[in-house]
């Protein structure tokens, strides 16, 4: 029963890959078949934000009750969140190359995502430059919370103030505006859930691995 979510995520991913690549997608100007990137690119961002949020949640838990387990989880969620972010940027660049004409276009969402990654790369640099384990955990937890709160205006507010070139923003065709959207949603929402569950799975493996490593180094 404990592993139920793993079975669900694998089953959903099989469904998404088959359905996402084979089922009919709406014909939209410019987007054409690249609209299928929705199932693979957008869930990366949902996953990144969710994983970072969980990382912040554990950072808060650590500050309230300094157990090294919370710190470990906080770091690993941030790690996997960063991996999702890098994948999101790469898939987005691939997509932008075919629809916008060049991989990097200075779109506000693109820039916001790059800055979010910078924040967490700085977080890892901070962890690298403190020697004392307990102090490292405390300082990085504080920075995690602070940076996450400072990042929210960038990712959620600023792109909505300016026109983004992303589908569905600033008059660009998105999947909401069309009557075929329900068919895409049938794949999109499971995709978000599946990729997020995969992220949680990777985190749980990494946490167990790190715990074993710690035990070995103690003996």
């Amino acid at each position: 029963m404990k592993n139920l979510y793993k079975y669900i995520s694998v089953a959903l991913l099989v469904y998404i890959h088959l359905g996402g690549l084979l089922l009919e997608a709406p014909r939209l100007n410019i987007l054409n078949e690249t609209v299928r990137a929705l199932y693979f690119h957008v869930p990366m961002w949902f996953g990144m934000v969710l994983l970072y949020s969980i990382s912040v949640y554990y950072a808060i838990k650590f500050l309230r009750n300094p157990l090294s387990d919370f710190d470990l989880k906080s770091v690993e969620y941030a790690n996997v969140g960063t991996a999702f972010g890098i994948l999101g940027i790469l898939t987005g660049m691939l997509w932008a190359n075919y629809t916008w004409g060049s991989p990097w276009h200075g779109d506000p969402k693109q820039n916001g995502a790059a800055i979010a990654l910078l924040v967490y790369l700085a977080y890892f640099v901070l962890r690298g430059s403190v020697d004392n384990e307990e102090q490292k955990a405390r300082l990085s937890a504080v920075y995690n919370i602070f940076a996450f709160a400072a990042m929210i205006p960038l990712i959620f507010i600023i792109p909505r103030l300016t026109d983004s070139m992303h589908p569905g923003n600033g008059g660009n065709p998105g999947f909401n505006a069309y009557d075929l959207d329900s068919r895409m949603r049938l794949i999109f929402y499971p995709a978000v859930i599946a990729w997020f569950l995969i992220g949680v799975w990777i985190v749980s493996l990494r946490v167990r691995y790190r715990l074993l490593q710690n035990q070995l180094s103690e003996n």
Partner: peptide
Amino acid sequence: LSFPVLIS
């Protein structure tokens, strides 16, 4: 540490 936070 500060630049990403200050960008907004």
